[in-house]
Amino acid sequence: MKVAVALGVVGLLLAGCDPTPGPAPLASASPTPAANLGLTQAGDLRTHLDLILGEQVMIAAKETVAAVNHSDEYAAYTALLTANAADLTQLMRRAFGNTTATKISEAWSTQNSDLIDYAIGVVTHDDARSKSAMTNLTTKFVPQFSQLLSDASHLPLDPVTQLESQQVLEDKAFIDDYFANKVSAFYADLHRAYTQSSRLGDALAVEVASRFPDKYPGDPSSHAVYVRVQANLMLQEHSYLATMATSAAIAGRTAEKNVAQSMLSDRADAVSALFASSTGALSAPLVAQWTNEHSALFTYAAGDARAKPDLTQKFVNEFASLAHVSKAYVLDHVNATLKVIDDQRAKNATAVANDDRSAATSIQPIGDSIQG
């Protein structure tokens, strides 16, 4: 059994080195069970770890956007990296204990500092600073962090190192894109970096849950967990993209707003297909509801309060019915997103980052409701 698990984890790691995602597992032909089989502690570990790793990428992107545009939001999003790191440390502490978790936390915090330094160096044309930061990431952080994870989890060192090296390159790409005003490339590379982050999380969660089944009962590799993880990752990305798009719209960065809106629609198509495969319904009606939501969000961002009931009533009722999820969950997320837009319009730079994270977190109960 242990040999089979080890081979499976190595397969996950090797697959993760390919920047092109593999095909999704085939949906089961059996009827959907009454209980969501993805809601296990092993499923919790994989879902939450992937969300934390993906969120770090989105925060780094938002911090970069703020830095390039000299926005007062920069400090708030930079500070949000600390909150994200604290969540990662908490997960690592339960898995590996205090000593190892502290070492992982220190390495992760160093990575965050180097990413910030790299972005600052790029924005301020300080080549020495940006080169030093990237050298630290590639020659210090990657080997140190990879060794820590390998020692703690027993994952093979070389594939872990390859995954972390690739992640640094993906993160660098979207930072460089935005500074160079290559907005289309920025959003494409941001999605690629976000997707890359979950590959390490998947492999690590499977290995940890397999080594400690008493702590993490359940099968982290099951199709039900896969669907739960994908739903949560897609919805978190959608939430952060939505507020990136409204931020660009409010600031008058029309070209960026249009690209962000296009990426938002693309992600809505993907998550609608996943929801439809779970419910057995067509995805087109869900796509239409996402489109209505996007339109209403931009209208609200433009200062038209009449869009609010379209979101809190019409969208909530129709989307919840189509997706087979609680109206309360959808309403919570809509209200949280509107709060972020209110912050953006009021230039409430001290509150916007935390509210942005709250909005992204508020969508998780919807993701957890989707059954595989």
Rank of each mutant, 00 (worst) to 15 (best):
S247A: 12
N112S: 15
L200Q: 12
Y118C: 11
A79I: 01
A320G: 00
L322S: 03
N84S: 12
T47S: 10
L149R: 06
D269N: 14
R199Y: 14
K308F: 02
M1P: 09
G201Y: 03
F179W: 08
A133V: 06
D368Q: 12
Y329R: 00
N258K: 12
L115F: 15
T138A: 08
T254P: 08
T161W: 03
L115Y: 13
D343W: 04
A128D: 04
T138E: 14
V229H: 09
L51A: 11
E55I: 07
D44K: 07
S198C: 07
M263Y: 10
Y329V: 03
D50G: 13
K308W: 01
R129L: 15
A349I: 03
E318L: 02
S130C: 12
V316S: 02
A107M: 06
H223N: 12
D214R: 11
G43C: 04
F145Q: 02
A35D: 12
Q236H: 08
N292P: 00
L155A: 11
D177S: 10
A173F: 08
P159H: 07
T139V: 06
I116Y: 02
L91Y: 00
L241R: 12
S262K: 14
I52W: 07
V9W: 08
Y187M: 04
T135S: 13
S295N: 11
L322Y: 00
H70K: 13
A349W: 10
L81K: 13
D44Y: 12
R94A: 11
V122T: 15
S283I: 02
V183R: 09
P25V: 10
Y329C: 00
L204V: 01
Y240K: 04
T195L: 10
L200Y: 06
I104H: 02
A27S: 11
N36P: 07
A320R: 01
F315H: 03
D171I: 14
G201I: 05
S265R: 12
D355G: 01
Y118S: 14
Q111C: 15
E164K: 06
S165L: 08
A60D: 12
D343G: 05
T138V: 09
A203H: 04
N98S: 13
H223E: 13
L169N: 09
Y77E: 00
V206I: 10
N36M: 05
A133W: 04
A83M: 08
N36L: 07
T350H: 08
I370F: 00
V142T: 11
V325Q: 00
A349D: 11
Q344N: 01
A34K: 14
A270P: 02
D126W: 08
D304Q: 12
Y74C: 06
A328N: 06
S239I: 10
I52F: 06
D87N: 14
G97M: 03
I250L: 02
S239R: 05
Q90V: 03
K182A: 15
G201A: 14
A119L: 11
T291N: 14
L80M: 10
F141G: 02
T291M: 05
P217F: 07
R211N: 08
F96G: 09
A75Y: 04
W290V: 05
S130F: 04
F315L: 03
A75P: 01
A75K: 10
A353Q: 07
N84W: 02
V225P: 04
F96H: 13
A301M: 02
I52A: 12
K172F: 09
D176Q: 14
R93D: 11
A302S: 15
L331P: 01
A270G: 06
R211L: 09
